[in-house]
Design a protein around this nucleic acid. Sequence first.
DNA 1: GGACAGAGTTGAACGTGTTCAAAAGAGAGC
DNA 2: GCTCTCTTTTGAACACGTTCAACTCTGTCC
Lengths: 262, 262
Amino acid sequence: MTGGAGDADPRPRAGLRGEAAGAGARTRGAGARTRGRTAKAEATRARILDAAVELLREEGYPAMTMRAIAERAGVSTGNAYYHFASKDDLVQAFYMRTHEEHLVVAQPAIATARGFEAKLAALMDTKLETLEPYHAFAGALFQSVADPNSPLNPFSEASRPVRAEATRLFEDVVAGARLKVPKDLAAELPELLWTWHMGIVMYWVHDASPGRRRTRKLVASSIAIISKLVTVSSLPLMKPLRRSVLDLLRDLRVEDEPDTAA
Amino acid sequence: MTGGAGDADPRPRAGLRGEAAGAGARTRGAGARTRGRTAKAEATRARILDAAVELLREEGYPAMTMRAIAERAGVSTGNAYYHFASKDDLVQAFYMRTHEEHLVVAQPAIATARGFEAKLAALMDTKLETLEPYHAFAGALFQSVADPNSPLNPFSEASRPVRAEATRLFEDVVAGARLKVPKDLAAELPELLWTWHMGIVMYWVHDASPGRRRTRKLVASSIAIISKLVTVSSLPLMKPLRRSVLDLLRDLRVEDEPDTAA
DNA sequence: GGACAGAGTTGAACGTGTTCAAAAGAGAGC
DNA sequence: GCTCTCTTTTGAACACGTTCAACTCTGTCC
């Protein structure tokens, strides 16, 4: 649990965020800004994130303090908090970066692989490869997976955009595999698969086996199961079960906004 | 993430732990001890835990600092750390306490309910009722669900004992319901259900709907699905799928020890 | 009673994440 | 040049979780 004052209150995190999408129109208009951020600020922000990652790889997680990060980036600690709302926020930015790295290697791998299972395996294998360098720190790093306020949490409201972004890869898999699957299920499948993938990552975090053998085995086995499930789901006998599952998902989605309207 | 020095290192937590099982033989032998703990120490420990819960209910989670807890309990902060290895440890003791509270109400409710679905609903309803008073703080409280070192984490090594303890209720459900289910699956079902139940709790943590309506709906829907799945699993057609799932579970269990043997 | 040992307790000290009033920088309009 | 405004940066300060050397308490053995 965090130090500092005010721990649990989910205050609307200030600070500048995002960076994911195309870094297109730079130096536009007056002042050299990108999305409300000065070019200079953007550079500082990047420098801080770089410093954090370097520190993590070179000296381990305990050494990755906000003070150390700021010092290495050549700024004050206060400045780090100007660019990142919290250390968690910094970690999330880092996670986003690995996600983008993954995208680059995953897309061709998925395209090359033939068939649903192979594509899914390609996606997950590349994911684990991308994450591997950080495995030693993963536990500390991804604690937030269960934190209500974290975008990494599968159930979280804030997770919607990240999830949407990450779900696209699974759409590629489903679309590219020409799966024989009922249309209603096909629509939900990518998000279901994303949830499965979060579970795998969670397991991976705890996996101390050499070469992450256990996780790889889990991936292989569960892909086989998913494939069987998908196949079976087309059977007429399965219709009621399928309906129940889909209804459940729809319910979750429909209700998935804060109950503001009384 | 924690303050203090040495954050990620999973050092063998010192401190005295446990308290769950029967507080039977007290003042035995010389010195009035129970399991290596003086009666006096046990009293202090209880006082600290009580203080923490009071503070939580009366002033909210942010006010539940180790200093405040110690002060209310009439001890020094250092002393709190003599009885609990960390604040997390304190939270886990608290979780254990709610689990015991739950046991008391759940067992008769399960026994009374007729049929698998009703029993499962009884278990989960009582669980949510037990937890409800703490919902406001649940997010902060149960952050550790994703922390590798926490017994609350479903994948964690350390979770085995807690899980075993909690799984017993699900055994009651399965045994009491005279379920028509293949023997091999029946053996695994309780632990599967426990995992499902952790998922529900995780969802509940984020559920801001009045009266936790959304979670209740999720419980109802997913129980229906589980029931259908169990029924369907007996079909001869399902055998390969069932085998795959069981093999997977067996693999996870077999490999579920640290790879010490080289 | 006195010495011993171990359990229980203390509180100052450490390093952490985070905040904030104030300063510095950078462009716009005059 | 000067002022005004907004962005960016600073560093001291705060409360937090946690540690630890030193102290007190309590029962035991002679």
